[in-house]
Design a protein around this nucleic acid. Structure first.
Lengths: 186, 186
DNA sequence: GTTTGTCAACTAACCGGTTGGAAGATAGTC
DNA sequence: GACTATCTTCCAACCGGTTAGTTGACAAAC
């Protein structure tokens, strides 16, 4: 057998992402993660310290990927929202992980990177408003909240929702259109 | 001791609502529910059959309450959204329960009452569009989805969000304003 | 006396976390 | 290149505590 600590660590992270996205923290099973990663339970405690810390590691890597891959574009908020909406559709585990992280008790610790990235986005919007690129109807943080939340519309859709929704690409376009109307574009 | 089956049932339902909203299905503890209800674990199995069925009972009662208490008003969608937003703030357990119901695996069963209520709302919007009361830019189901989702903006806000958000009443008004702009109102 | 509601105690299974040591890699020595 | 001491990576088996679900007997109501 090949021995490679980094590879094992990564396999554990990948397996943990799938398991946590599917079952949350309380519902995730450490044994399942170890088995899925073709590894052993003891490795998890060796590499990460425990179940909760493993979740933090997974969540941190997701946040980092998200922050790096989808920078905000204050000149094209509708396009930004549509891009986010597509990303949520293609990678449903991202939103699931974020929602678990928010719901599960005993995890009030906010991710520092996420806070910093959000703060920077608010500043960019405020600057764009000062420059007259965006209307001042909504305070910067409110506008960002609305845009980010609209991008997640179809991801968060309850299963009760009727099957009459249009296909994916059309849904992204409707999100973009909604954002467009928030900021007065024609 | 007074013996009252209905009262015991109700106490169990109330305790279960709090427990499930806080911890979800996997994280909820049957013993805690029984203790909180000043009852006994065996009663839960006697009255509801099991943990999962108890959750279904709780979820069903919440959906019923929600459907009955907040009927849609197609003549005032902004006001409807603001009302919903306020309700989500006052009763956070409603949204938490709904989110958990969506996330937890092995629960793909949709609530029949919720589906029916949503379908009726879509029909009302379609009629209002046909009557010229609402613009036809968005298909009925899409418009409903956007409005319902916007109403939940601040409930779903990630904890990473900066503390620069305005107070509750102002937030509801921003939700109403966003909806207003979706449907062309001044 | 029968039905109905209540509960403490039980159990079988499960789960997160630990341990001790086996197996592979590494580097120094001759 | 062979030998070996040492370190790193890996894992099967185990442990203590917890959990959902069961049971059987007791007590109140009618």
């Amino acid at each position: 057998m090949i021995r490679d600590a980094d590879a094992t660590r990564q396999r554990l992270l990948d397996a943990a992402l799938a398991e946590f996205a599917e079952h949350g923290i309380a519902g995730a099973r450490v044994d399942r993660i170890a088995a899925q990663a073709n590894s052993n339970k003891a490795q998890i405690y060796h590499y990460f310290g425990g179940k909760a810390q493993l979740f933090d590691a997974v969540y941190g890597s997701i946040v980092r990927r998200l922050v790096e891959s989808t920078p905000i574009d204050v000149h094209d908020l509708p396009g930004y929202a549509a891009k986010l909406a597509r990303m949520y559709d293609v990678h449903p585990e991202v939103m699931r992980l974020a929602v678990w992280h928010r719901l599960e008790p005993g995890e009030p610790e906010v991710n520092a990177l996420a806070v910093e990235a959000t703060g920077r986005k608010v500043d960019l919007i405020a600057q764009a408003q000062a420059d007259g690129l965006l209307p001042k109807r909504f305070p910067p943080a409110v506008l960002l909240g609305l845009v980010l939340h609209l991008a997640a519309t179809w991801t968060e859709a309850n299963p009760e929702f009727p099957g009459e929704l249009p296909d994916a690409e059309a849904r992204y376009e409707y999100v973009a259109e909604a954002v467009r109307r928030l900021i007065d574009l024609p």
